[in-house]
Amino acid sequence: MINHLFRYTLLFIILVLVQILILDNLQISSFVVPFLYVLFILMLPFEIPGWLLLLMAFFTGFVMDLFEHTYGIHTSATLLMAWFRPGVLKLIAPQDGYVPNSEPMIRDYGFSWFMKYSVILVFLHHAILFYFEVFTFHHFFTTLFRVFISSFFTIFLIVLSQFSVYKPKGLGRG
């Protein structure tokens, strides 16, 4: 339990630092704004109780809002994503269900399962985020394009992190 707490705290701090120190300083174009911090919500264990999931999402979004001066935009997008997470997990569950003590990662459930899981949730998060940020449906397709491109880059980074940070079996396995 303590081990779990330590691991997820560390993951949270690393993701927030990567987001504000590196990704926010990239500024490739206004269409490419990856938000890697959503990986934290994706990585939480299967057995996490609903209330904790929502509170974690609220806290994560709130921290990002503070750093990015956006007030509520990240919080609402991350919350919505967290709310959809149990439903999505049920929807794409493998035939014999989820194995106890396994984690939502490529290592445990394979590439195509993980892609389905992350694409749905990341796209949802980015869609809410960008439309709420623009606060109008005026340039509907421009915003939609931003959502697509940014989601693509976020997912790319998420998949990359699966291979680089989490060595298959062993390292950091609590």
Binding site: G50, L54, A57, G61, G72, T75
Partner: peptide
């Protein structure tokens, strides 16, 4: 329904923060 209700409460808080910021300049 606590999962949905908790989500609703938190989401309302977040959205109202966002709307306030967008309508009035709270910078």
């Amino acid at each position: 329904y606590y999962f949905f209700l908790l989500f609703l409460i938190l989401e309302v808080i977040a959205v109202s923060m966002g709307i306030q910021y967008n309508l009035y300049q709270r910078a």
